[in-house]
Design a binder for these strands. Structure first.
Lengths: 228, 228
DNA sequence: ACAAAAGTGTTCAAGGTACACCCATGA
DNA sequence: TCATGGGTGTACCTTGAACACTTTTGT
Protein backbone atom coordinates (compact mmCIF):
# COMPACT_ATOMS: atom_id res chain seq x y z
CA UNK A 1 0.00 0.00 0.00
CA UNK A 2 1.60 3.28 -1.05
CA UNK A 3 -0.23 6.01 0.83
CA UNK A 4 0.53 9.35 -0.79
CA UNK A 5 0.40 12.43 1.46
CA UNK A 6 -2.64 13.82 -0.39
CA UNK A 7 -4.88 10.96 0.70
CA UNK A 8 -7.50 11.91 3.23
CA UNK A 9 -7.97 9.72 6.24
CA UNK A 10 -11.49 8.64 7.04
CA UNK A 11 -11.47 10.97 10.04
CA UNK A 12 -10.66 13.98 7.88
CA UNK A 13 -13.25 13.03 5.30
CA UNK A 14 -15.84 12.76 8.02
CA UNK A 15 -15.12 16.33 9.10
CA UNK A 16 -15.64 17.72 5.64
CA UNK A 17 -19.06 16.09 5.32
CA UNK A 18 -20.07 16.71 8.90
CA UNK A 19 -23.35 18.32 8.01
CA UNK A 20 -24.65 15.13 6.41
CA UNK A 21 -24.19 12.92 9.44
CA UNK A 22 -25.52 11.18 11.63
CA UNK A 23 -26.27 8.88 8.69
CA UNK A 24 -24.81 9.76 5.38
CA UNK A 25 -26.60 8.89 2.18
CA UNK A 26 -24.80 8.30 -1.07
CA UNK A 27 -25.41 6.86 -4.49
CA UNK A 28 -22.89 4.63 -6.24
CA UNK A 29 -23.02 4.05 -9.97
CA UNK A 30 -21.84 0.89 -11.64
CA UNK A 31 -21.12 2.41 -15.05
CA UNK A 32 -20.64 -0.38 -17.54
CA UNK A 33 -19.09 -0.30 -20.96
CA UNK A 34 -17.90 -2.92 -23.43
CA UNK A 35 -14.47 -2.99 -25.06
CA UNK A 36 -12.00 -5.64 -26.15
CA UNK A 37 -14.82 -8.14 -25.96
CA UNK A 38 -15.09 -7.66 -22.22
CA UNK A 39 -17.40 -5.85 -19.87
CA UNK A 40 -15.67 -2.83 -18.38
CA UNK A 41 -16.58 -0.76 -15.39
CA UNK A 42 -15.64 2.86 -14.79
CA UNK A 43 -13.69 3.20 -11.55
CA UNK A 44 -11.54 5.70 -9.73
CA UNK A 45 -8.68 5.33 -7.27
CA UNK A 46 -10.03 5.56 -3.78
CA UNK A 47 -9.06 8.77 -2.03
CA UNK A 48 -9.32 7.18 1.40
CA UNK A 49 -6.19 6.11 3.20
CA UNK A 50 -7.95 2.95 4.33
CA UNK A 51 -8.38 1.86 0.71
CA UNK A 52 -5.17 3.26 -0.75
CA UNK A 53 -4.48 1.76 -4.15
CA UNK A 54 -7.91 0.17 -4.46
CA UNK A 55 -10.51 0.95 -7.09
CA UNK A 56 -13.82 2.44 -6.19
CA UNK A 57 -17.12 2.94 -7.98
CA UNK A 58 -18.25 6.45 -8.81
CA UNK A 59 -20.51 7.87 -6.20
CA UNK A 60 -21.36 10.95 -4.23
CA UNK A 61 -23.40 12.03 -1.30
CA UNK A 62 -27.00 12.83 -2.17
CA UNK A 63 -27.71 16.53 -1.90
CA UNK A 64 -30.57 17.60 0.32
CA UNK A 65 -32.50 19.12 -2.55
CA UNK A 66 -32.19 16.41 -5.17
CA UNK A 67 -34.18 13.26 -5.82
CA UNK A 68 -32.37 9.97 -5.39
CA UNK A 69 -32.54 9.17 -9.09
CA UNK A 70 -31.31 12.65 -9.95
CA UNK A 71 -28.28 12.19 -7.76
CA UNK A 72 -27.18 9.18 -9.75
CA UNK A 73 -27.86 10.93 -13.06
CA UNK A 74 -25.72 13.78 -11.79
CA UNK A 75 -22.82 11.51 -10.85
CA UNK A 76 -23.05 9.87 -14.23
CA UNK A 77 -23.10 13.13 -16.13
CA UNK A 78 -20.29 14.65 -14.09
CA UNK A 79 -18.08 11.66 -14.77
CA UNK A 80 -18.93 10.82 -18.36
CA UNK A 81 -20.56 13.91 -19.81
CA UNK A 82 -23.44 11.71 -20.88
CA UNK A 83 -27.11 12.42 -20.39
CA UNK A 84 -30.07 10.28 -21.19
CA UNK A 85 -28.49 6.94 -20.58
CA UNK A 86 -30.00 3.83 -19.11
CA UNK A 87 -29.87 3.87 -15.34
CA UNK A 88 -31.56 1.54 -12.91
CA UNK A 89 -31.66 1.37 -9.16
CA UNK A 90 -30.61 -2.00 -7.85
CA UNK A 91 -30.20 -2.18 -4.10
CA UNK A 92 -29.45 -0.22 -0.96
CA UNK A 93 -26.35 -1.24 0.98
CA UNK A 94 -26.35 -0.26 4.60
CA UNK A 95 -24.28 -2.34 6.98
CA UNK A 96 -22.82 -0.32 9.82
CA UNK A 97 -19.20 -0.92 9.03
CA UNK A 98 -19.26 -0.48 5.28
CA UNK A 99 -17.67 2.97 5.36
CA UNK A 100 -14.68 3.87 7.52
CA UNK A 101 -15.74 7.52 7.78
CA UNK A 102 -18.82 6.63 9.72
CA UNK A 103 -22.33 5.66 8.91
CA UNK A 104 -23.01 5.91 5.20
CA UNK A 105 -25.65 3.97 3.40
CA UNK A 106 -25.56 3.88 -0.35
CA UNK A 107 -28.07 3.25 -3.09
CA UNK A 108 -26.53 1.36 -5.98
CA UNK A 109 -27.46 2.01 -9.59
CA UNK A 110 -26.15 0.55 -12.78
CA UNK A 111 -25.84 2.24 -16.08
CA UNK A 112 -24.95 1.11 -19.59
CA UNK A 113 -23.05 3.33 -21.99
CA UNK A 114 -21.28 3.15 -25.31
CA UNK A 115 -17.67 3.37 -24.26
CA UNK A 116 -16.62 4.96 -27.59
CA UNK A 117 -19.12 7.69 -27.16
CA UNK A 118 -17.98 9.21 -23.91
CA UNK A 119 -15.57 12.08 -24.01
CA UNK A 120 -14.12 11.89 -20.53
CA UNK A 121 -10.39 11.89 -20.24
CA UNK A 122 -9.75 8.48 -18.89
CA UNK A 123 -6.53 7.92 -16.95
CA UNK A 124 -6.68 11.49 -15.73
CA UNK A 125 -7.79 11.93 -12.16
CA UNK A 126 -7.13 8.22 -11.84
CA UNK A 127 -10.46 7.57 -13.53
CA UNK A 128 -10.35 4.58 -15.80
CA UNK A 129 -12.14 1.63 -17.35
CA UNK A 130 -11.21 -1.74 -15.90
CA UNK A 131 -12.42 -5.13 -17.11
CA UNK A 132 -14.91 -6.38 -14.57
CA UNK A 133 -13.15 -9.72 -14.58
CA UNK A 134 -9.85 -8.27 -13.34
CA UNK A 135 -11.15 -6.40 -10.30
CA UNK A 136 -10.69 -8.89 -7.52
CA UNK A 137 -10.71 -6.49 -4.61
CA UNK A 138 -12.30 -3.06 -4.52
CA UNK A 139 -12.70 -0.30 -1.97
CA UNK A 140 -15.59 -0.47 0.53
CA UNK A 141 -18.14 -3.16 -0.40
CA UNK A 142 -17.90 -2.11 -4.01
CA UNK A 143 -17.08 -5.52 -5.39
CA UNK A 144 -20.26 -6.83 -3.80
CA UNK A 145 -22.23 -3.92 -5.26
CA UNK A 146 -20.73 -4.63 -8.66
CA UNK A 147 -21.69 -8.30 -8.44
CA UNK A 148 -25.23 -7.45 -7.40
CA UNK A 149 -25.62 -5.17 -10.40
CA UNK A 150 -24.12 -7.69 -12.81
CA UNK A 151 -26.49 -10.34 -11.57
CA UNK A 152 -29.48 -8.03 -12.01
CA UNK A 153 -28.31 -7.14 -15.50
CA UNK A 154 -27.91 -10.76 -16.53
CA UNK A 155 -31.42 -11.55 -15.34
CA UNK A 156 -32.90 -8.89 -17.58
CA UNK A 157 -31.03 -9.06 -20.86
CA UNK A 158 -33.54 -11.22 -22.69
CA UNK A 159 -36.54 -9.31 -21.33
CA UNK A 160 -35.53 -5.76 -22.12
CA UNK A 161 -33.37 -4.31 -24.90
CA UNK A 162 -30.58 -3.25 -22.57
CA UNK A 163 -27.30 -4.43 -23.99
CA UNK A 164 -27.66 -2.32 -27.13
CA UNK A 165 -26.77 0.63 -24.94
CA UNK A 166 -23.26 -0.80 -24.72
CA UNK A 167 -22.75 -1.04 -28.48
CA UNK A 168 -22.27 1.52 -31.24
CA UNK A 169 -25.35 2.54 -33.22
CA UNK A 170 -24.63 -0.05 -35.89
CA UNK A 171 -23.41 -3.49 -34.99
CA UNK A 172 -23.24 -7.00 -36.37
CA UNK A 173 -25.09 -9.89 -34.78
CA UNK A 174 -21.80 -11.49 -33.90
CA UNK A 175 -20.87 -8.45 -31.80
CA UNK A 176 -24.18 -8.67 -30.05
CA UNK A 177 -23.82 -12.36 -29.37
CA UNK A 178 -20.33 -11.92 -27.93
CA UNK A 179 -21.68 -9.23 -25.66
CA UNK A 180 -24.48 -11.48 -24.45
CA UNK A 181 -21.91 -14.19 -23.84
CA UNK A 182 -19.79 -11.82 -21.75
CA UNK A 183 -22.73 -10.77 -19.65
CA UNK A 184 -24.13 -14.26 -19.18
CA UNK A 185 -20.76 -15.93 -18.76
CA UNK A 186 -21.59 -18.74 -21.13
CA UNK A 187 -21.35 -19.47 -24.82
CA UNK A 188 -24.48 -19.45 -26.93
CA UNK A 189 -25.43 -21.35 -30.06
CA UNK A 190 -25.37 -18.97 -32.99
CA UNK A 191 -28.56 -20.16 -34.70
CA UNK A 192 -30.57 -20.31 -31.50
CA UNK A 193 -29.32 -16.89 -30.44
CA UNK A 194 -30.37 -15.29 -33.72
CA UNK A 195 -33.81 -16.83 -33.54
CA UNK A 196 -34.24 -15.73 -29.95
CA UNK A 197 -33.31 -12.14 -30.78
CA UNK A 198 -35.35 -12.12 -33.99
CA UNK A 199 -38.64 -12.86 -32.24
CA UNK A 200 -38.17 -9.83 -29.96
CA UNK A 201 -38.35 -7.46 -32.95
CA UNK A 202 -35.84 -5.16 -31.30
CA UNK A 203 -33.63 -4.73 -34.36
CA UNK A 204 -33.78 -3.01 -37.72
CA UNK A 205 -31.53 -3.98 -40.62
CA UNK A 206 -29.58 -0.87 -41.65
CA UNK A 207 -28.81 -2.28 -45.11
CA UNK A 208 -25.11 -1.71 -44.41
CA UNK A 209 -22.52 -4.42 -44.09
CA UNK A 210 -19.34 -4.78 -42.10
CA UNK A 211 -16.25 -3.31 -43.81
CA UNK A 212 -12.64 -4.41 -43.86
CA UNK A 213 -13.16 -7.71 -42.23
CA UNK A 214 -11.06 -10.59 -43.40
CA UNK A 215 -14.08 -12.80 -43.90
CA UNK A 216 -17.60 -12.61 -45.24
CA UNK A 217 -19.04 -9.34 -43.91
CA UNK A 218 -22.07 -9.44 -41.67
CA UNK A 219 -25.15 -7.27 -41.87
CA UNK A 220 -25.24 -4.27 -39.58
CA UNK A 221 -28.30 -3.76 -37.41
CA UNK A 222 -29.50 -0.97 -35.23
CA UNK A 223 -31.89 -1.07 -32.33
CA UNK A 224 -35.42 0.25 -32.87
CA UNK A 225 -35.74 1.72 -29.38
CA UNK A 226 -33.29 0.96 -26.62
CA UNK A 227 -34.32 1.39 -23.02
CA UNK A 228 -33.17 4.66 -21.52
CA UNK B 1 -60.58 14.78 7.36
CA UNK B 2 -61.00 14.85 11.14
CA UNK B 3 -57.75 16.16 12.60
CA UNK B 4 -57.64 15.39 16.29
CA UNK B 5 -55.65 17.77 18.49
CA UNK B 6 -53.03 15.09 19.25
CA UNK B 7 -51.85 14.91 15.64
CA UNK B 8 -48.40 16.30 15.06
CA UNK B 9 -47.90 18.65 12.16
CA UNK B 10 -45.01 17.96 9.86
CA UNK B 11 -43.18 20.95 11.30
CA UNK B 12 -43.43 19.59 14.82
CA UNK B 13 -42.38 16.14 13.75
CA UNK B 14 -39.38 17.61 12.02
CA UNK B 15 -38.30 19.27 15.27
CA UNK B 16 -38.44 16.04 17.20
CA UNK B 17 -36.20 14.25 14.72
CA UNK B 18 -33.93 17.21 14.11
CA UNK B 19 -30.77 15.27 14.78
CA UNK B 20 -31.34 12.98 11.82
CA UNK B 21 -31.62 15.72 9.23
CA UNK B 22 -30.46 17.04 6.66
CA UNK B 23 -31.57 13.82 5.00
CA UNK B 24 -33.56 11.40 7.06
CA UNK B 25 -33.36 7.70 6.43
CA UNK B 26 -36.17 5.33 7.23
CA UNK B 27 -37.27 1.80 6.51
CA UNK B 28 -40.87 0.94 5.67
CA UNK B 29 -42.18 -2.61 5.98
CA UNK B 30 -44.95 -4.00 3.85
CA UNK B 31 -46.07 -6.70 6.27
CA UNK B 32 -48.37 -9.07 4.44
CA UNK B 33 -50.79 -11.60 5.83
CA UNK B 34 -53.62 -13.67 4.39
CA UNK B 35 -57.12 -13.85 5.81
CA UNK B 36 -60.65 -14.17 4.47
CA UNK B 37 -59.13 -15.32 1.19
CA UNK B 38 -57.51 -11.95 0.67
CA UNK B 39 -54.04 -10.51 1.02
CA UNK B 40 -53.89 -8.18 4.00
CA UNK B 41 -51.33 -5.57 4.91
CA UNK B 42 -50.57 -4.30 8.39
CA UNK B 43 -51.09 -0.55 8.57
CA UNK B 44 -51.40 2.19 11.12
CA UNK B 45 -53.24 5.50 11.12
CA UNK B 46 -50.86 8.23 10.07
CA UNK B 47 -49.90 10.54 12.93
CA UNK B 48 -49.22 13.42 10.58
CA UNK B 49 -51.78 16.17 10.16
CA UNK B 50 -51.11 16.20 6.44
CA UNK B 51 -52.30 12.60 6.16
CA UNK B 52 -54.98 12.62 8.83
CA UNK B 53 -57.25 9.63 8.47
CA UNK B 54 -55.01 7.87 5.98
CA UNK B 55 -53.29 4.55 6.48
CA UNK B 56 -49.56 4.24 6.57
CA UNK B 57 -47.08 1.39 6.38
CA UNK B 58 -45.03 0.53 9.43
CA UNK B 59 -41.70 2.22 9.40
CA UNK B 60 -39.14 4.00 11.49
CA UNK B 61 -36.02 6.03 11.17
CA UNK B 62 -32.89 3.94 10.94
CA UNK B 63 -30.76 4.27 14.03
CA UNK B 64 -27.18 5.33 13.59
CA UNK B 65 -25.82 2.12 15.04
CA UNK B 66 -27.98 -0.45 13.25
CA UNK B 67 -27.67 -2.13 9.88
CA UNK B 68 -30.34 -1.36 7.35
CA UNK B 69 -31.70 -4.90 7.41
CA UNK B 70 -31.71 -4.89 11.19
CA UNK B 71 -33.80 -1.76 11.23
CA UNK B 72 -36.55 -3.47 9.29
CA UNK B 73 -36.33 -6.59 11.44
CA UNK B 74 -36.67 -4.33 14.45
CA UNK B 75 -39.77 -2.59 13.08
CA UNK B 76 -41.29 -5.94 12.29
CA UNK B 77 -40.57 -7.39 15.71
CA UNK B 78 -41.79 -4.29 17.53
CA UNK B 79 -45.07 -4.37 15.66
CA UNK B 80 -45.79 -8.07 15.42
CA UNK B 81 -43.65 -9.71 18.09
CA UNK B 82 -42.35 -12.02 15.39
CA UNK B 83 -38.74 -12.90 14.75
CA UNK B 84 -37.26 -14.98 12.04
CA UNK B 85 -39.74 -14.16 9.35
CA UNK B 86 -39.16 -13.69 5.66
CA UNK B 87 -38.04 -10.17 4.86
CA UNK B 88 -36.70 -8.83 1.60
CA UNK B 89 -35.47 -5.43 0.55
CA UNK B 90 -37.26 -4.16 -2.51
CA UNK B 91 -36.49 -0.57 -3.42
CA UNK B 92 -35.37 2.79 -2.12
CA UNK B 93 -37.83 5.66 -2.53
CA UNK B 94 -36.31 9.09 -2.47
CA UNK B 95 -38.13 11.85 -4.27
CA UNK B 96 -37.72 15.23 -2.60
CA UNK B 97 -41.34 15.83 -1.82
CA UNK B 98 -42.31 12.40 -0.57
CA UNK B 99 -42.35 13.43 3.09
CA UNK B 100 -43.92 16.65 4.36
CA UNK B 101 -41.53 16.86 7.32
CA UNK B 102 -38.58 17.37 5.05
CA UNK B 103 -36.15 15.19 3.24
CA UNK B 104 -36.64 11.55 4.12
CA UNK B 105 -35.68 8.67 1.93
CA UNK B 106 -36.97 5.25 2.75
CA UNK B 107 -35.92 1.72 2.01
CA UNK B 108 -38.92 -0.53 1.44
CA UNK B 109 -39.00 -4.15 2.60
CA UNK B 110 -41.71 -6.71 2.42
CA UNK B 111 -42.40 -9.47 4.82
CA UNK B 112 -44.73 -12.47 4.90
CA UNK B 113 -46.27 -13.72 8.12
CA UNK B 114 -48.94 -16.09 9.30
CA UNK B 115 -51.63 -13.71 10.43
CA UNK B 116 -53.00 -16.21 13.01
CA UNK B 117 -49.65 -16.50 14.58
CA UNK B 118 -48.99 -12.95 15.59
CA UNK B 119 -49.98 -11.84 19.03
CA UNK B 120 -50.19 -8.10 18.51
CA UNK B 121 -53.33 -6.40 19.61
CA UNK B 122 -54.77 -5.23 16.40
CA UNK B 123 -57.15 -2.29 16.47
CA UNK B 124 -55.26 -0.86 19.40
CA UNK B 125 -53.01 2.05 18.61
CA UNK B 126 -54.91 2.21 15.35
CA UNK B 127 -52.82 -0.69 14.08
CA UNK B 128 -54.80 -3.03 11.89
CA UNK B 129 -54.89 -5.42 9.00
CA UNK B 130 -56.53 -4.08 5.86
CA UNK B 131 -57.19 -5.99 2.65
CA UNK B 132 -54.70 -4.73 0.10
CA UNK B 133 -57.52 -4.40 -2.40
CA UNK B 134 -59.40 -1.85 -0.30
CA UNK B 135 -56.58 0.63 0.28
CA UNK B 136 -57.06 3.10 -2.49
CA UNK B 137 -55.19 6.00 -0.98
CA UNK B 138 -52.47 5.82 1.62
CA UNK B 139 -50.24 8.28 3.43
CA UNK B 140 -47.02 9.44 1.74
CA UNK B 141 -46.14 7.35 -1.32
CA UNK B 142 -47.08 4.22 0.56
CA UNK B 143 -49.55 2.93 -1.99
CA UNK B 144 -46.78 3.04 -4.57
CA UNK B 145 -44.43 1.24 -2.19
CA UNK B 146 -47.09 -1.38 -1.57
CA UNK B 147 -47.61 -1.91 -5.30
CA UNK B 148 -43.88 -2.23 -5.90
CA UNK B 149 -43.64 -4.91 -3.22
CA UNK B 150 -46.68 -6.79 -4.48
CA UNK B 151 -45.25 -6.83 -7.97
CA UNK B 152 -41.94 -8.15 -6.71
CA UNK B 153 -43.71 -10.82 -4.71
CA UNK B 154 -45.79 -11.98 -7.65
CA UNK B 155 -42.67 -12.31 -9.79
CA UNK B 156 -41.10 -14.68 -7.29
CA UNK B 157 -43.84 -16.99 -6.09
CA UNK B 158 -43.08 -19.85 -8.44
CA UNK B 159 -39.33 -19.58 -8.00
CA UNK B 160 -39.08 -19.56 -4.22
CA UNK B 161 -41.28 -21.12 -1.53
CA UNK B 162 -42.52 -17.79 -0.22
CA UNK B 163 -46.27 -17.96 0.10
CA UNK B 164 -46.16 -20.76 2.66
CA UNK B 165 -45.06 -18.12 5.14
CA UNK B 166 -48.59 -16.70 4.90
CA UNK B 167 -50.34 -19.98 5.73
CA UNK B 168 -50.65 -22.07 8.89
CA UNK B 169 -48.23 -24.95 9.28
CA UNK B 170 -50.73 -27.38 7.77
CA UNK B 171 -52.85 -26.42 4.81
CA UNK B 172 -54.79 -27.98 1.97
CA UNK B 173 -53.81 -27.52 -1.64
CA UNK B 174 -56.98 -25.59 -2.26
CA UNK B 175 -55.93 -23.01 0.33
CA UNK B 176 -52.58 -22.72 -1.35
CA UNK B 177 -54.10 -22.33 -4.77
CA UNK B 178 -56.47 -19.60 -3.59
CA UNK B 179 -53.52 -17.78 -2.08
CA UNK B 180 -51.59 -17.98 -5.33
CA UNK B 181 -54.65 -16.69 -7.15
CA UNK B 182 -54.89 -13.73 -4.77
CA UNK B 183 -51.27 -12.82 -5.26
CA UNK B 184 -51.26 -13.28 -9.01
CA UNK B 185 -54.66 -11.75 -9.56
CA UNK B 186 -55.82 -14.54 -11.85
CA UNK B 187 -57.50 -17.91 -11.56
CA UNK B 188 -55.49 -21.06 -12.06
CA UNK B 189 -56.43 -24.47 -13.36
CA UNK B 190 -56.52 -26.92 -10.46
CA UNK B 191 -54.79 -29.83 -12.15
CA UNK B 192 -52.08 -27.71 -13.70
CA UNK B 193 -51.47 -25.89 -10.45
CA UNK B 194 -51.01 -29.13 -8.53
CA UNK B 195 -48.59 -30.47 -11.10
CA UNK B 196 -46.62 -27.25 -11.07
CA UNK B 197 -46.29 -27.27 -7.30
CA UNK B 198 -45.56 -31.01 -7.19
CA UNK B 199 -42.45 -30.75 -9.34
CA UNK B 200 -40.93 -28.16 -6.97
CA UNK B 201 -40.84 -30.74 -4.15
CA UNK B 202 -41.57 -28.03 -1.63
CA UNK B 203 -44.30 -29.94 0.21
CA UNK B 204 -44.58 -32.90 2.54
CA UNK B 205 -47.83 -34.77 3.06
CA UNK B 206 -48.64 -34.67 6.78
CA UNK B 207 -50.96 -37.68 6.56
CA UNK B 208 -53.71 -35.54 8.11
CA UNK B 209 -56.90 -34.50 6.40
CA UNK B 210 -59.13 -31.49 6.64
CA UNK B 211 -61.77 -31.70 9.38
CA UNK B 212 -65.32 -30.43 9.55
CA UNK B 213 -65.60 -29.49 5.94
CA UNK B 214 -68.89 -29.98 4.22
CA UNK B 215 -67.34 -31.88 1.38
CA UNK B 216 -64.69 -34.48 0.77
CA UNK B 217 -61.74 -33.50 2.99
CA UNK B 218 -58.46 -32.62 1.37
CA UNK B 219 -55.01 -33.77 2.40
CA UNK B 220 -53.03 -31.43 4.58
CA UNK B 221 -49.51 -30.58 3.56
CA UNK B 222 -46.67 -28.76 5.21
CA UNK B 223 -43.71 -27.06 3.65
CA UNK B 224 -40.34 -28.78 3.84
CA UNK B 225 -38.36 -25.56 4.28
CA UNK B 226 -39.89 -22.16 3.75
CA UNK B 227 -37.65 -19.21 2.96
CA UNK B 228 -36.88 -17.06 5.97
C1' DA C 1 -7.39 -22.32 -53.01
C1' DC C 2 -7.71 -21.37 -48.47
C1' DA C 3 -9.11 -19.31 -44.04
C1' DA C 4 -12.67 -17.29 -41.54
C1' DA C 5 -16.98 -16.14 -40.16
C1' DA C 6 -21.99 -15.33 -42.17
C1' DG C 7 -26.21 -17.22 -42.69
C1' DT C 8 -29.77 -20.68 -42.33
C1' DG C 9 -33.72 -25.31 -40.70
C1' DT C 10 -34.98 -29.51 -38.58
C1' DT C 11 -35.52 -32.68 -34.90
C1' DC C 12 -36.28 -33.66 -30.18
C1' DA C 13 -37.41 -32.88 -25.31
C1' DA C 14 -39.62 -30.29 -21.78
C1' DG C 15 -42.94 -27.44 -20.02
C1' DG C 16 -47.41 -25.02 -20.25
C1' DT C 17 -52.37 -25.09 -21.29
C1' DA C 18 -56.89 -26.81 -22.02
C1' DC C 19 -60.10 -29.83 -20.62
C1' DA C 20 -63.89 -33.88 -17.82
C1' DC C 21 -64.87 -37.45 -14.94
C1' DC C 22 -65.35 -40.14 -10.67
C1' DC C 23 -64.82 -39.93 -5.44
C1' DA C 24 -65.55 -38.91 -0.46
C1' DT C 25 -67.88 -36.44 2.89
C1' DG C 26 -71.70 -33.87 5.46
C1' DA C 27 -76.21 -32.27 5.40
C1' DT D 1 -79.57 -38.32 -2.68
C1' DC D 2 -77.63 -34.17 -3.26
C1' DA D 3 -74.26 -30.49 -3.04
C1' DT D 4 -69.57 -29.54 -2.69
C1' DG D 5 -65.06 -29.61 -3.57
C1' DG D 6 -61.03 -33.50 -3.83
C1' DG D 7 -58.30 -35.85 -6.78
C1' DT D 8 -56.45 -37.33 -11.22
C1' DG D 9 -54.47 -37.94 -16.95
C1' DT D 10 -54.20 -36.98 -21.80
C1' DA D 11 -53.64 -34.32 -26.05
C1' DC D 12 -51.85 -30.34 -27.97
C1' DC D 13 -48.79 -26.49 -28.50
C1' DT D 14 -44.97 -23.63 -27.58
C1' DT D 15 -40.36 -23.02 -26.33
C1' DG D 16 -35.64 -24.17 -25.83
C1' DA D 17 -31.62 -27.16 -27.14
C1' DA D 18 -28.73 -29.71 -30.16
C1' DC D 19 -26.66 -29.90 -34.34
C1' DA D 20 -23.93 -29.16 -40.04
C1' DC D 21 -23.57 -27.36 -44.36
C1' DT D 22 -23.21 -23.73 -47.96
C1' DT D 23 -21.90 -18.81 -48.94
C1' DT D 24 -19.10 -14.69 -49.15
C1' DT D 25 -15.21 -12.14 -48.61
C1' DG D 26 -9.95 -11.14 -48.22
C1' DT D 27 -5.44 -12.90 -48.69
Amino acid sequence: MNSSPSLKSAAVEKQSHQSYFKIGLSVDCVILGYANKELQVLVIKSDLKEFAGQWSLLGDLVRPEEDLDNASYRVLEERTGLKNVYLEQVHAFGTRDRHPSGRVITIAYYSLIDIQNHKMQVNEHELTWKPVRTLKKMAFDHRKILDTCLLRLSEQVFDKPLLFNLLPVKFALRDLQELYESVLGETLDRRNFRKKIAVKHWLRDTGDMEKSVVHRPGRLYTVKAASK
